[in-house]
Design a protein around this nucleic acid. Structure first.
Lengths: 189, 189
DNA sequence: GGAAAACATTAACCTAGATTAATTAATTTA
DNA sequence: TAAATTAATTAATCTAGGTTAATGTTTTCC
């Protein structure tokens, strides 16, 4: 079952009784996305957070010149949403779409908060995930401030070796913050 | 009392009994830092997270060329630590020092985790803070990828109006990711 | 299986922001 | 309060990375 992957993931961080696991599963919605299909459009409200079972999603924003900037890739076992919209219920600044055919389980903020009251361990699980995400986000910020494009590309290669061969280069360029043309040049040097 | 500021802050997000408040306070350590004094040096382990009562701290990293990059300013009522080191107990990548004479209350990770077991509301409080920090960090990442230096400076001015007149320009430059020389030029345009 | 679309490469030229270095404020501290 | 640090400004020069545009290479999908 695809829910096993999620419960397993949760149990890496906290322990859950069978009943608690069932309760969590009962709040999840399974969705299948075709490649290029959107889970969230900028301007909508992100009522749900998604856990990727298989495939890969990305979150990105489009700047005033029409350039896409990728905030996050979410391959299997990652959570993804527009966190700003998810917690504030305001219009999302990000869009989320599928980079390949993708299966996800979604959990609404409403259900999540309700589960936090019923299953304190689940709040702990998300507290831990959010701490880890914060560390990752801040580390990436520092990298963007202090490394050259070449160094950022190399770091990406070692940090996400599985994505390097899976994703088109232009997406990696949009993640590390260079043009596809410059990334192409970079790879020769 | 300086602990009032902290309890008040916590009570903005969750409710606490008097006993719970006392228990939290009993785990806190009050520290006074003189301007330029370090709370944490890169390479040490960040056993504590600090809540600023008055004054202002910053966290920063030093790159291979000796340039400082500021990750966070923490004026009154902000929490600050090297989150990576704090949650992993590994060597910090960041340093933290005082930009002026500063009073803080610190809480060790050990005590924090113990309090999470005793006072679920406190875990919720930190879950919420961490969610908000994640939103802020990701938003800053997007800004660094999509805005010009000028736009980032303007955004900084509107986001942290109180800091603009308090902090030396070179620190603001180190936060938005430009040289002090270029920031100076920017301000004329 | 082949046309169309999407992606990658290359090269010439351009620009935002860095570097260096000198000059002038403004703070610190003795 | 004066010397010494530290911060800010200015200007000339330099460079990492962007832009544009043309060409070649994969994918997609009918």
């Amino acid at each position: 079952m695809s829910t096993d992957l999620l419960l397993q993931n949760i149990r890496k961080h906290i322990s859950l009784t069978g009943v608690e696991g069932d309760k969590i599963i009962s709040k999840l919605k399974k969705i299948t996305l075709k490649k290029k299909q959107f889970l969230l459009h900028e301007g909508q409200i992100a009522h749900e957070v998604a856990f990727v079972i298989s495939g890969c999603l990305r979150s990105f924003s489009v700047d005033e010149n029409g350039f896409e900037h990728i905030l996050q890739f979410a391959p299997a076992e990652w959570w993804i949403t527009d966190m700003y919209s998810f917690i504030s219920e305001k219009e999302a600044h990000l869009s989320i779409d599928a980079l390949m055919d993708t299966e996800i389980m979604t959990l609404s903020r409403k259900n999540q908060l309700q589960l936090f009251d019923e299953i304190p361990g689940l709040e702990r699980y998300f507290r831990i995930l959010t701490e880890n995400s914060l560390v990752a986000s801040r580390s990436r910020l520092i990298d963007n401030l202090s490394l050259t494009a070449k160094q950022r590309y190399q770091k990406f290669c070692t940090t996400y070796p599985s994505l390097i061969n899976t994703l088109p280069q232009k997406l990696i360029a949009a993640y590390i913050g260079v043009t596809p043309e410059f990334l192409s040049k970079l790879r020769k040097l």
